[in-house]
């Protein structure tokens, strides 16, 4: 029946993630994090890449400025549906990894945005106040949410790289 098919399509899993934290993520953290910050070329280029969390946030870190933009992934944006409101934090807010750094509302759902790393909010994407749907149109570029000055760039190493995140979302199933 046609109407039922539409309903099934709407009933997507929302911002899925592993039910049990720890495991792989902590194992990576323990294995990859150096005992002290290193400044080797290899380390710098590794940090410069985009990193991802199991909560479907991304951070794009710029080694030279020590700042990183944070947003939600395309996977999350698809699962959340049409974003109608974005709540942004105040500039200068200090946050620890895992803190809510904003929230979005879509399809009657208020969803917290968690920061992947600790730091200070140095910029917010004011475009989202006027055009919240930017998150759906360009979640990983124009739809960035906050810019952070990182407390410790080594925190990035516990996050997933692009390939790892891709296989993580594939394991979650083809919800969309």
């Amino acid at each position: 029946m046609a109407s039922r098919t539409v309903l099934s399509a709407v009933a997507r899993s929302v911002a899925p993630r592993l039910a049990i934290q720890g495991g792989a993520r902590n194992a990576v953290a323990v294995a990859a994090r150096p005992a002290y910050p290193t400044r080797s070329f290899a380390s710098a280029s590794r940090l410069a890449a985009k990193r991802f969390t199991e909560d479907h946030e991304w951070i794009d870190y710029d080694e030279s400025s020590k700042k990183g933009k944070v947003g939600i992934t395309e996977y999350a944006a698809n699962a959340l549906g049409d974003v109608v409101y974005v709540e942004l934090p105040a500039v200068d807010t200090e946050v620890s990894a895992g803190d809510a750094v904003g929230a979005v509302e879509s399809v009657k759902s208020a969803s917290d945005i968690l920061t992947p790393v600790s730091g200070k909010v140095v910029g917010i994407n004011s475009t989202l106040e006027e055009k919240p749907a930017t998150i759906n149109k360009s979640p990983e570029q124009d739809g960035w949410i906050v810019e952070l000055e990182l407390t410790d760039a080594a925190e990035l190493e516990s996050l997933m790289d692009e390939a790892k995140y891709k296989s993580f979302t594939e394991e979650l199933g083809d919800d969309h």
Binding site: A15, A19, D55, A110, S111, D112
Partner: peptide, 10 residues
């Protein structure tokens, strides 16, 4: 209906 999503919980 209304929803709140945070830290892996819905």
């Amino acid at each position: 209906s209304a929803y709140k999503l945070t830290r892996g919980r819905a």
